[in-house]
């Protein structure tokens, strides 16, 4: 079981949370201008790296707030967690 730190509530068991997939995927600024390929990218395509991955979690049984976690998908090590209005630590994406 993962031990994930909610930025507001502190470290809690994974079972208190639900997963939300890749973080930092913005809604298209001009949706009407998108091609089918670009819509497909937005709706269906997400990064799937083996290594550090910025992802969304929600503290379902706690404060019920969304936040982001940087986690290594190869080792499952939780590297850090941060509020959704903060940029991904380390700069990229």
């Amino acid at each position: 079981m993962l031990l994930i730190t909610c930025p507001w509530c502190g470290p809690r068991d994974e079972t208190e949370y639900h997963y939300g997939g890749q973080a930092h995927v913005p809604y298209p600024p001009a949706p009407a201008d998108l091609t089918d390929q670009q819509w497909a990218e937005y709706v269906f395509y997400r990064d799937n790296p083996k290594g550090p991955f910025a992802e969304r979690w929600v503290h379902s049984t706690g404060c019920r707030r969304w936040f982001n976690v940087l986690r290594d998908t190869a080792t499952h090590e939780v590297l850090t967690s941060y509020r959704p209005d903060e940029p991904r630590p380390g700069g990229t994406r």
């Binding site: 079981m1 994974e14 079972t15 997963y19 799937n48 992802e55 986690r71 190869a74």
Partner: peptide
């Protein structure tokens, strides 16, 4: 397991 992972293992719950 709900999260992405390449570790060939999951959570015990």
């Amino acid at each position: 397991d709900a999260y992405n992972g390449y570790g060939q293992r999951g959570s015990f719950h």
